[in-house]
């Protein structure tokens, strides 16, 4: 699979998908191992996210972030995002992925 450089707008499927998760609680795991739980406020086309009411799950390792309540995380430093399973319609997502694939071919 071809990875998308950060300066090019990537395909919009996951952007739309993450927009449906706005106002849900997610856990973001960054490449520097910070784990942040918070309410998803916004997402942009690079999959940068903005969280509110954040809680750093490994605060003993990262005390620097304890003084913040909202944060913006650049898409390029995110390793994983843990999603609320109840809020994800996997059948719909699979369907959308197929459609996007067909549209590209």
């Amino acid at each position: 699979m071809r990875s998308t450089p950060h300066h090019l707008p990537p395909p919009q499927l996951f952007y739309s998908f993450f927009k449906t998760l706005i106002d849900h609680e997610v856990i973001v795991i960054c490449k520097n191992d910070v784990r942040i739980r918070g309410k998803l406020i916004s997402v942009d086309q690079y999959l940068s996210v903005k969280l509110q009411d954040i809680q750093v799950l490994n605060a003993e390792r990262f005390p620097q972030m304890q003084s913040t309540t909202t944060c913006f995380i650049r898409g390029s430093v995110i390793r994983y995002i843990e999603l609320p399973a109840a809020a994800v319609d996997t059948a719909l997502l699979q369907d959308a992925a197929r459609k996007a694939c067909l549209a590209q071919a």
């Binding site: 520097n32 913040t68 309540t69 944060c71 913006f72």
Partner: peptide, 13 residues
């Protein structure tokens, strides 16, 4: 080189 940023809550700080 920015990985994340957030507003500082003076009380929490």
């Amino acid at each position: 080189v920015i990985s994340s940023m957030g507003r500082v809550d003076p009380q929490r700080e």
